[in-house]
């Protein structure tokens, strides 16, 4: 068990990795990555029961994680490497020719930690629910976790999967929505309002909880609580309130940095706000 301050230190380094990775290839998605850093750090360094040194697709006797909003690959890659799935130095290859760290994650490039491709949005919940049902068939009582963007919930397939999961009592899955209320073209309210999201999931038969995703203590408490809600006949969703771009003041709370890489000067400015705790790659 990592302490809160240890996790906060890791998160700070992960945020540095994100900024440096997208700057290094002058492309990629820093906004959602920064917003989900606290969650991803908590998952990979505290919550998930996983074996980084011996990654398997089947994940037997382990928790499984699926990233549905694949564009926030920088945060996933950073956390995976820092947790020991592959060498940290490989982060420098992000989005470059020949890399295993493709713009959007894929098992095609044989990167340990990644089980299925994502990038085309709205598919990860179906995959996670399928994996959760297979876990039950296999007699494995570990959990499946999925992470989704909120804009992604505009895809119809999400709601197909949501309806199916409750209809089939898939109660060994915790799905987390990065509820930052921002998407590429603007706020979700401007683009296509999600309405009352909690009510929607409740109506689809899910157990719903909310938490602040940019407060490490609350993230840990929230994930622990969500775990107690599993295996009770319903799938569990966490509406995780975050700020897109959290941790870098000029990137926070705007759609501008959804898929925009910072310049060298902006990178310098961003890094000055993020403590180097574990050593840059």
């Amino acid at each position: 068990m990592a302490t809160v301050s240890e996790l906060q230190n890791i998160a700070s380094q992960v945020r540095r990795d994100i900024v440096r990775m997208v700057n290094g290839c002058a492309s990629g998605h820093p906004g959602g990555s920064l917003g989900c850093t606290d969650l991803m750090t908590a998952l990979y360094f505290d919550v998930l029961d996983i074996k980084p040194e011996n990654f398997t697709f089947e994940g037997k006797g382990e928790d499984m994680f699926f990233l549905s909003n694949g564009h926030i690959s920088p945060v996933w890659y950073s956390v995976l490497s820092r947790r020991g799935f592959f060498p940290i130095s490989e982060l420098a290859t992000f989005r470059k020719l020949g890399t295993r760290l493709q713009g959007h994650p894929t098992p095609h490039s044989h990167l340990p930690g990644v089980r299925v491709a994502s990038g085309s949005l709205g598919q990860g919940l179906s995959v996670g629910v399928g994996a959760a049902q297979a876990k039950k068939l296999n007699g494995c009582n570990h959990l499946v976790y999925t992470l989704h963007g909120d804009g992604e919930l505009q895809e119809g397939q999400i709601w197909e999967a949501a309806m199916y999961a409750s209809s089939n009592k898939v109660d060994n899955i915790i799905s987390i929505v990065d509820y930052n209320k921002v998407q590429i073209d603007g706020t979700t309210d401007q683009i296509c309002s999600l309405g009352d999201l909690a009510a929607k999931f409740l109506a689809f038969g899910w157990d719903v909880m909310e938490m602040n995703g940019n407060d490490m203590e609350e993230v840990l408490r929230g994930l622990a609580k969500a775990k107690t809600m599993t295996n009770k006949g319903k799938p569990v969703v966490i509406l995780m309130h975050t700020l897109m771009g959290y941790g870098v003041d000029f990137m926070q709370g705007t759609n501008k940095w959804h898929g925009q890489a910072p310049s060298n000067d902006q990178t310098k400015e961003a890094l000055s706000q993020l403590k180097e705790t574990l050593g840059d790659y």
Binding site: F57, E58, G59, K60, M64, F66, R115, V116, G122, Q123, G124, L125, S126, V127, G128, V129, G130, A131, A132, Q133, A134, K135, L137, N138, C140, G156, Q157, E160, A161, M163, Y164, S167, N168
Partner: peptide, 21 residues
């Protein structure tokens, strides 16, 4: 597994099940 009239979800479910062997 009966998915109902939801083919996109069916393909995703199948992929998830395949991952688990």
């Amino acid at each position: 597994f009966q998915t109902g009239i939801a083919e996109a979800n069916m393909i995703g479910l199948a992929a998830g099940m395949a991952l688990s062997g």
